[in-house]
Design a protein around this nucleic acid. Sequence first.
DNA 1: GCAGCATCGTATGCGTACAAACGATATCGA
DNA 2: TCGATATCGTTTGTACGCATACGATGCTGC
Lengths: 152, 152
Amino acid sequence: MNVKPEIKAEPSTMPDGYVLEDQVGHLIRRAHQRHTALFMAMIGDEQITTTQYAALVKLYQMGELSQNHLGRLTAMDPATIQGVIRRLTLRKLISHRPDKNDKRRRCLSLTSGGRDLVGRLLNNGPKVSRATLDPLSPAEQQQFVALLKRLT
Amino acid sequence: MNVKPEIKAEPSTMPDGYVLEDQVGHLIRRAHQRHTALFMAMIGDEQITTTQYAALVKLYQMGELSQNHLGRLTAMDPATIQGVIRRLTLRKLISHRPDKNDKRRRCLSLTSGGRDLVGRLLNNGPKVSRATLDPLSPAEQQQFVALLKRLT
DNA sequence: GCAGCATCGTATGCGTACAAACGATATCGA
DNA sequence: TCGATATCGTTTGTACGCATACGATGCTGC
């Protein structure tokens, strides 16, 4: 149960008080890790990830979208959304058909199974958000989200 | 230069006002993307990533650490820190020797080249933090970081 | 109508991030 | 002392995230 005494050695002096743990990027990264863990534990499906959920919800809301457009709406570049869509298609949650007017595009939409899944998970989304913000008071939560929105 | 009119279809009704873009997890993910892009553009070395920088700075500060302990200090699990250390070792920024008292451990430390690199990059760390927080006023920046720290 | 440019989706390569399983080593408790 | 348990670092597999390059298609301006 105990951890060994850690190795020690000669540290180097830092320019003024540079503390890695106080840097905003490090804190954002850790907040992202924590949120992802909460999401995977609470969303209600073992396989669905945060980005897959975002793609499914957007398709649920919008009905039919081209692949890159869906990527833009969910903040994923073409290479990333391609992988996400491939995995969701393998799970038969998404289907695609060619666009009549533009041969380059794939029209993506949810299958009935995909719609069912989103319907089941949709109530859990707000629960994850609440759990993520739980350490803050309601007023602080509003403040935090408002500030976070301006950092994009 | 123009984007085509986007595909439209029958959207599904959502339970109350669920807006993906307002969910804190989505905002944290986008803030993380933005910070990473700013870091890569500003840190002063084309190859060094955020996690590699964290590992280098910690070793610079602490002098010598075991691999998993360094991982805990920088919020990386053993599998992740292993890859980071392997790449930094390949670049000859980090060296390792066996621990006298514990044969399982690798004692990690910076090479002279690693110390030189950290010395050159260290002033850029705060610049990245400032750029990340730039959309906010000074008071808001303090508020934001304070709230973010409590979400970990 | 056609040349240049933009966008579509794909593919490859590299770097996190983490779960799971592993052998080796260390420690704790009976 | 010795067996159970914990930790160390590694490996494998899956999933983002992005840079880069690619061929196919669409659009714009001359």
